[in-house]
């Protein structure tokens, strides 16, 4: 009897569980204004303000194209950090995670749902930014370049999902909101996502290499041709290592319960 039930998990049933889980995760985050509004609207508002409304040029840089890449990074970080960090912290506190852990849900579905949700929100943010950039910022970008940028940004959510996951294992409940904000906002600013780094003191420019968001910004700026001589391999390696490091830290915390 047991073996029958265990073997009766065809791939289609499994994938339906995964997608349904992702759908409900997306739906409930969309219905949570404290999550949906800041993650969807803030990057757009900041971009419109700094890239379009405020006048001025920075040397040879195309301001609205440059900031499209960096606000794109800022935009995909939010859902990943908040979705995983605050999501997990709240679900641990409410007992929801405990109930899921004894339900017949494959563990992978939980993480898949959160990653898929982060990607969907990230994609919406990038599309909103792109509409503003092309429609009001006079940015000209070829479709293939744009698709490449989207791909880089979406793959770039992974290290931030991992960092968020780790934060979610460290603290419970609303405390995670504060912690995520303390990580998210300073890291964004110090990586030059709000304003290009050359507006910053020399030592802050040098220190930017420690932030994963700086590495992702280098990649994004590179693929849309805003900076040259980008060491793609280096940045990709740093982002992969960051992902692996924080996933391991989170796994240790989760197992150590």
């Amino acid at each position: 009897m047991t073996s029958n039930v265990i073997s009766a998990s065809p791939a289609w049933m499994l994938s339906r569980i995964y997608w349904r889980e992702a759908g409900y995760e997306f739906l409930r985050m969309l219905r949570t204004p404290a999550f949906a509004l800041p993650t969807l609207i803030f990057p757009l508002v900041f971009y419109v303000m700094f890239a379009i409304v405020l006048p001025g040029r920075w040397g040879d840089f195309d301001k609205s194209a440059y900031l499209l890449a960096t606000y794109g990074v800022f935009g995909i970080m939010g859902p990943a950090l908040f979705g995983f960090g605050v999501g997990l912290a709240l679900e641990r506190e409410s007992g929801w995670l405990a109930l899921k852990q004894v339900s017949p849900m494959p563990t992978g579905a939980y993480f898949f749902a959160k990653i898929a949700m982060s990607l969907c929100f990230g994609l919406v943010v990038v599309i909103l930014l792109s509409i503003a950039a092309v429609g009001f910022g006079d940015v000209e970008i070829a479709l293939d370049r744009w698709l490449l940028l989207v791909a880089v940004l979406l793959l770039g959510t992974l290290p931030f999902c991992a960092i968020g996951l780790w934060i979610g294992t460290l603290v419970k409940g609303q405390a995670a909101v504060a912690i995520v904000n303390l990580v998210y906002l300073p890291m964004s600013i110090l990586s030059g996502l709000w304003m290009p780094l050359f507006a910053f003191p020399q030592f802050l420019q040098k220190a930017a290499v420690i932030w994963p968001s700086w590495h992702l910004a280098q990649l994004s700026l590179g693929v849309i041709g805003q900076i040259s001589d980008v060491r793609y391999l280096l940045h990709v390696s740093v982002l992969l290592l960051t992902t692996a490091l924080f996933l391991s830290l989170a796994a240790m915390r989760l197992r150590g319960r």
Partner: peptide, 10 residues
């Protein structure tokens, strides 16, 4: 379980 709270917005 004794103390599970489900997500509020569903």
């Amino acid at each position: 379980q004794q103390s599970a709270n489900l997500p509020e917005t569903l």
